[in-house]
Design a protein around this nucleic acid. Structure first.
Lengths: 215, 215
DNA sequence: CATTCCATGATTGTATCCAATCCGTGGGCT
DNA sequence: AGCCCACGGATTGGATACAATCATGGAATG
């Protein structure tokens, strides 16, 4: 039998997808009645899922007026990336020295997935695999709270990330970065890993800030 | 007329108090029916408030089994304080140079409140004023997301903080620390401020870890 | 005696209903 | 015309009712 899941969890997953895919656009109000209906549930589990997203900063909430998909200002964007950088630096500083050879092997397996996905050009698959790669590294820190905070920051900009991985130049660039990163990890070279991760953020922030400026 | 507030907001405030005061003990299951009844609301707003607390790590949630007041392990505690330290360092590094003379004056006003509260020995008042002091500093960073993350980390250990401010020696110590801190702020001396804040955390972690070990 | 199974009560999950609030709109007044 | 207020539709907030799930304990079985 497939995993018995609560409606609320399913709703949460679906909402994340709709925000990341742009089906729910930044600034837009979430009309609970119609959204709940379109998801095939009542408003109760939907509202609980929205509370979770509110805590992550993916939506904002105004009492008696409802939930709105978060609309980041440039200042918000700068803050999110600054926070990402201090959190990710810490995760790498702690985690890289703890990497086992098995961990490295696992990371290389993920890289194979990423590159395979890149060949097919399936943007969703690339995005997911890229994420798995970076978070597998962060998780080596053994700091689950820290990793969750980093994940929240990534999610916060999902609505703007757009189609970065849709052009082959960007895909090639990503692969190069990943290869540099894994070399640093094999050498357990913390500082290079941190620098590499910073470069990765640099690309990301450029894509996202363009998306924000367009809107 | 006083602020019209939603039930859910009131419930959230009350839950925070009950967790911080130990009325809801770490590890204990939250029985929604009875708690909702004791708060005079139905389960719907209670559940939404619990979702918020779950996002902050104050309670844990197991589908179909319910919510439990978070019970920190020593490893969790270490992680929370490590995260606090990187977040607070950043807030000070950004915020201290931005402090205006007005800000400093405001901080001194708060310190007067803290010391007045200390004289009365009202633990709740001291705790609240102490918190106001530290967060007023953090807020100088103009990084609301960062400040919120720091606040979450403070909240995470509220259930264990106990009666630190109940002994006069500790109160005296706190006042001394605050005076050192404000000197550093007046001098816009980032590094000393960071060191002072680290010392403050050091006290805190000792208190909290004792509380965890007792349980 | 240990183990499995099921019945049962306790608790959570969700749908539905109604109340409270907000917001736009239009009529009346100056 | 411009302003104010009352009203009505749209939407959210919360209470209640019921369904789904889980945990407990005791009976049946080996």
């Amino acid at each position: 039998m497939s995993e018995s899941i609560t409606a609320q969890e399913g709703v949460l997953r679906e909402l994340r997808l709709q925000i990341a895919s742009g089906k729910l656009k930044p600034g837009q109000q979430v009309i609970q009645d119609s959204l709940a209906a379109s998801l095939g549930v009542s408003r109760v589990p939907l509202r609980e899922a929205l509370k979770v997203l509110e805590g992550e900063g993916q939506v904002t909430y105004h009492p008696h007026r409802g939930y709105f998909v978060a609309d980041l200002s440039v200042a918000d964007l700068v803050e999110v990336y600054r926070i990402r950088s201090i959190l990710e630096d810490e995760a790498l500083r702690v985690g890289v020295p703890l990497l086992t050879d098995d961990d490295i092997e696992y990371l290389e397996d993920i890289l194979v997935d990423v590159e395979a996905a890149a060949k097919t050009g399936n943007v969703t698959a690339v995005t997911a695999a890229n994420r798995r790669f970076h978070f597998a590294i962060f998780e080596a820190s053994n700091m689950p709270r820290l990793v969750r905070m980093i994940r929240n920051q990534w999610d916060a900009t999902d609505a703007y990330r757009g189609v970065y991985f849709a052009t082959s130049a960007n895909l090639t660039h990503m692969n190069t970065e990943h290869r540099h990163m894994i070399s640093a990890l094999i050498a357990r070279d913390v500082e290079t890993a941190i620098a590499q991760q910073a470069a990765h953020r640099e690309n990301s922030v450029n894509v996202v800030s363009q998306a924000i400026n367009k809107s």
